[in-house]
Amino acid sequence: MKIQIWSDVMCPFCYIGKRRFELALQQFEHKDAIEIEWKSFQLNPNLVTDTTININQYLADIKGITLDHAKQMNEQVTQMAAQVGLAYDFDRAIVANSFDAHRFAHLAKQNSLGNEVEEALFNAYFTQGKNISDHDTLAELGKQIGLDKAEVYHTLSGNKYAVNVQQDIAQAQQLGVRGVPFFVMDNKYGISGAQEVPTFVQTIEKAYTEWVAANPQTKPEVIEGDSCEPGGSC
Rank of each mutant, 00 (worst) to 15 (best):
W6I: 11
M10S: 14
C14K: 00
Y15H: 11
K18A: 05
K18C: 01
K18I: 02
R19E: 07
E22L: 10
A24S: 05
D32A: 14
I34Y: 00
E37C: 07
W38I: 01
F41A: 13
Q42A: 01
N44S: 06
N46T: 05
N54F: 03
N54L: 04
N56Q: 15
Y58S: 07
I62Y: 05
K63G: 13
T66Q: 13
D68A: 15
A70R: 01
M73Y: 13
Q76Y: 11
T78E: 01
F90C: 12
F90M: 08
D91E: 15
R92E: 11
I94M: 06
V95Y: 02
V95R: 01
N97E: 07
D100Q: 02
H102K: 00
H106W: 13
Q110S: 12
L121I: 10
N123H: 13
G129N: 10
N131A: 11
I132M: 03
S133G: 09
H135Q: 05
L138Q: 01
G142H: 01
Q144P: 03
I145P: 08
K149E: 15
K149D: 04
E151M: 12
H154D: 15
T155D: 04
K160P: 07
K160V: 05
N164G: 02
Q166Y: 05
I169T: 11
Q171G: 00
Q171M: 08
Q173S: 15
G176W: 12
R178C: 03
M185I: 02
K188R: 13
A194G: 09
V201K: 08
V201R: 04
V201P: 00
A214Q: 14
T218Y: 10
S227E: 06
C228Y: 14
P230K: 10
G231W: 03
C234L: 09
